[in-house]
């Protein structure tokens, strides 16, 4: 018996990407093999192409109307559900983090933090609007109010260092605010991101709201910022030359650009409703108030 078990061949996981609620391989047929700090090959991971990104934008745009139109309360429940699913797969994520070079205790800490971060943003889904909106006391006879609305489709280059926590920290505020997104996972530590897609997939998150790609930032960043149907972009590394390129290219359709290059995702500084606000537009609405014959304020 004992020999039979030890002889059992381990089933290796195929790490695929996540587009439009499905798990395709890259259309390019290419792969790369990231290795752990000790030199062990982690997996054959999809080396995504521009075409994969464009497909992802199509699904993100398609999902935007539905997702942004949902009740904020419903978005809140779905983010909470994501946290539940993540918690349930804790062991799997820890194992992948350890493979990617974390210590066991750090891995556990990271999964816990990521789960808690989802719950944090689940709570914000139906509250940040009240924080960032206003009723404006205009001088004329009008009712006037300003509310935040999601910017649209957001392309994200996830933090390279924190494989799971970084990914969750940049996705959660974007989708909590009603946007949809395309995320490029950490190049050297992509395992958790693909597994996180499975969490999303089982959390009632509508397909296309989050799309996750793996590959080379150096290859994909120009496309992430060039695409005319992307409204905002998030980049998390302090690489001046890349930041310069991103800002230059963003002018094509005036993407909103956010560089989160100085944030420690492991602390409370890594979460805030102001991250939600970054991918919101303020809409101001006016309507006349009838004022017949100069009627005053009496009852």
């Amino acid at each position: 018996m004992a020999t039979a078990i030890s002889n059992r061949l381990e089933v290796l996981k195929t790490y695929k990407i996540y587009i439009g609620g499905q798990f395709p391989r890259t259309e390019s047929g290419r792969f790369y093999s990231p290795v752990s700090p000790s030199g062990k090959k982690l997996a054959n991971v999809c080396l995504c192409s521009r075409k994969d990104f464009r497909d992802a934008v199509v699904s993100a745009r398609g999902a935007f109307g539905g997702w942004s139109g949902r009740a904020a309360f419903n978005r809140s429940q779905i983010l909470y559900r994501m946290a539940e699913m993540l918690e349930g797969r804790k062991a799997q994520f820890m194992e992948e983090l350890v493979l990617q070079g974390s210590s066991k205790s750090n891995a556990e800490k990271e999964v816990n933090l990521a789960t808690d971060r989802l719950i944090y943003y689940a709570g914000w889904c139906d509250k940040f609007q009240q924080l960032f909106s206003a009723v404006n006391p205009v001088a004329s006879s009008h009712f006037n109010f300003s509310v935040p609305e999601p910017t649209g489709v957001v392309s994200i280059i996830a933090p390279q260092g924190d494989s799971l926590l970084g990914l969750v920290s940049v996705i959660a505020p974007v989708i909590a605010g009603g946007n949809t997104c395309i995320v490029l996972a950490s190049e050297t530590k992509p395992l958790c991101s693909v597994t996180f897609a499975e969490v999303l997939h089982s959390s009632d998150l509508p397909s296309g709201v989050v799309n996750i790609l793996t590959g080379m930032p150096s290859e994909l960043i120009p496309h992430f910022v060039d695409h005319m149907d992307v409204n905002a972009m998030i980049y998390c590394e302090k690489v001046p030359a890349v930041q310069k390129t991103i800002r230059e290219k963003s002018a094509n359709n005036l993407k909103r650009i956010h560089f989160y290059d100085n944030i420690n995702w492991n602390t409370d500084a890594g979460q805030s409703p102001y991250f939600i606000q970054d991918c919101q537009e303020i809409k101001t609405t006016w309507h006349p108030v009838e004022n017949i014959a100069g009627a005053g304020g009496g009852y």
Binding site: N136, A139, S140, H142, N231, L254, T284, W286, H287
Partner: peptide
């Protein structure tokens, strides 16, 4: 998808009222 929307009125402005655009109208 616009930053300022006038309903049953148009071209009203006030110091207390935020003004600015979506998309290529700026940020």
């Amino acid at each position: 998808r616009a930053g300022v929307i006038w309903a049953n009125t148009f071209n009203k402005f006030d110091p207390t009222s935020p003004f600015g655009g979506y998309k290529e109208s700026g940020f």
